[in-house]
């Protein structure tokens, strides 16, 4: 099992870096090209949510992202250290229910990112805890002997 860990401070500019790193490692792990856009978007959503939560509650704390090649799956875990207010605001399992809510309240609807992740990754686990939220996502990967995806 190969693991890459990255920690970054809660700045929006770093989300792009996290997306780039995750996409590069997903490709190397053997995630199909057709899924790389989903990986990029889902990891970006998880990191954006964490950055917004940290900026609100604990701007000095870093956000951690762990990227694992785990027996035929590429697994990403984003861990923050902020309270999980947004997870109570919506039912993340159904993005369609968000539409009316979005038009009714603030435009930057909390929880929308989680709904997007749920719609993108086939395996998602959101674990709110007393010390923060952990979002684990995974995608199928087919490693090759040299560590590069089959073309």
């Amino acid at each position: 099992m190969a693991t890459v860990e990255l920690t970054f401070s809660a700045l929006p500019a770093h989300v792009r870096t996290a997306r780039l790193v995750a996409t590069a490692i997903a490709r190397r792990t053997g995630v199909a090209e057709a899924l790389l856009d989903e990986v990029r978007l889902a990891v970006g959503e998880a990191c954006s949510r964490a950055v917004e939560a940290h900026r609100l509650h604990c701007p000095g704390e870093p956000i951690r992202i762990e990227l694992k090649d785990d027996s035929g799956r590429f697994e990403v875990t984003v861990t923050d250290a902020a309270p999980s207010d947004d997870l109570k605001a919506v039912d993340s399992s159904d993005g369609y229910r968000l539409v009316d809510a979005m038009l009714g309240i603030v435009p930057e609807m909390p929880g929308l990112g989680i709904a997007v992740i749920a719609g993108l990754a086939d395996d998602v686990e959101v674990s709110p805890g007393p010390t923060g939220v952990k979002i684990r996502m995974s995608w199928p990967a087919t490693p090759t002997p040299n560590g590069l995806a089959a073309v």
Binding site: R40, L41, G44, E45, S48, M102, L103, V106, P107, E108, M109, L112, G113, A115, V116
Partner: peptide, 14 residues
């Protein structure tokens, strides 16, 4: 690339 933050901005504009 477009994420939910961008969607939120478009909904806000709407």
């Amino acid at each position: 690339f477009l994420d939910s933050t961008g969607l939120g901005v478009l909904v806000g504009g709407l």
